[in-house]
Write a protein that binds this DNA or RNA. Structure first.
Lengths: 193, 193
DNA sequence: CTCCTATCGCAACTTTGGTTGCGTTAGCAT
DNA sequence: ATGCTAACGCAACCAAAGTTGCGATAGGAG
């Protein structure tokens, strides 16, 4: 009747989640199978099937587990610099074949399971909330109107990059990141957010 | 040795593509299997496997086949009205559970096959090119600087909507569409595109 | 220390997506 | 009209994902 979060269960869970990340980094969403993850984790596949059920649940769990990973909020001194830094971080991630696999797989999983979709939504909501700090600082400095929707400005900054990656298939680089950030900033300065 | 594009092959292809759309509208990407499509098309599954191979190829083919479908370019008299119309069309599509399945499935397919990815890229490149007409008219009317990148303005208008649908999982409505269009327009007027 | 049971390992089984070999049908050319 | 062959239908086959029943193991409580 009693749960056992401190013992074997915790070890198994940690091993499986680590294996999920490792498999994801290697082969992306396509190569991510329950069996491969189980084998790499040194665990039997039935264990994974019983506790998670599908690869999408695995990704959802891995995503929630990684939310507390530290992500540095940029602080360059100006909103423009900060927003460009945020955008450039996204652009660099997608430009790197090794690092892009994880977020791409997350989106793929979110398209197939509601658990993964919710986990992804929470992940990005959290990240946006944290990134919104650069907007708060800007408002405090008088760079932006006090009515500015901070999170919306962050969304507007990142959206064009994701759009290129997932919809139009166009490359993302520093130039695109700067343009996105400046465009979003122009809207904010115009008091549209 | 001779090809036979006019006879049975053409009928089979049309039936299969129609069945692909129908299956897609019903159950989305998850329910889309080669067997279901073949059965609905009144064709044996081996035929579909031999000519297309995977569901992603099916989607890619269906997408290329639907590219010539007419899509009305809005003409409200002002750029703002036109851009809002473009954005609202996207928002309405994603807000309708029946109509959203197709584009969502296309993105899902694009994440798993390069053929689907290329087909999707071509599809949206074509649509952007056509929608860019509203920008050309605006430049002709003197509403926007002549240096404006028309396609980039269209991308900026649509990006936040797709971002909400595929990344943050937030709803899209008329209000979001208007804000996206106005934000993109502000950037264009500032000469940032 | 000892018992209880949640959880895991294992092997066998079921289901389903995908493949192959072969005979049949139906366009197209002559 | 008639022969040729590309394309299709069919059934049997293969591989891999996912399931189930059962015995074994190891935390945690008393």
């Amino acid at each position: 009747m009693t749960a056992r979060p401190g013992g074997r269960s915790a070890r198994v869970r940690a091993a499986v989640i680590d294996a999920t990340f490792a498999e994801l980094a290697e082969g992306g969403y396509l190569r991510l199978t329950v069996e491969n993850v189980a084998t790499r984790a040194g665990v039997h596949k039935t264990t994974v099937y019983r506790r998670w059920g599908t690869v999408d649940e695995l990704i959802a769990d891995a995503l929630e587990h990684s939310r507390d990973a530290d992500w540095p909020v940029p602080d360059t001194g100006s909103v423009e610099g900060d927003l460009i830094a945020v955008a450039d971080d996204v652009a660099r991630t997608f430009a790197d074949p090794a690092r892009r696999t994880a977020p791409v797989a997350v989106v793929a999983a979110a398209l197939q399971s509601s658990r993964a979709r919710e986990a992804m939504a929470r992940f990005y909501a959290d990240r946006h909330r944290r990134a919104a700090e650069v907007v708060s600082r800007a408002v405090a400095r008088g760079e932006l109107p006090a009515t500015t929707d901070a999170v919306e400005l962050i969304r507007l900054t990142c959206a064009p990059l994701f759009y290129r990656v997932f919809v139009t298939g166009e490359p993302v680089d520093r130039e695109v990141a700067e343009r996105s950030a400046r465009a979003a900033l122009a809207a904010a300065r115009a008091g549209l957010l």
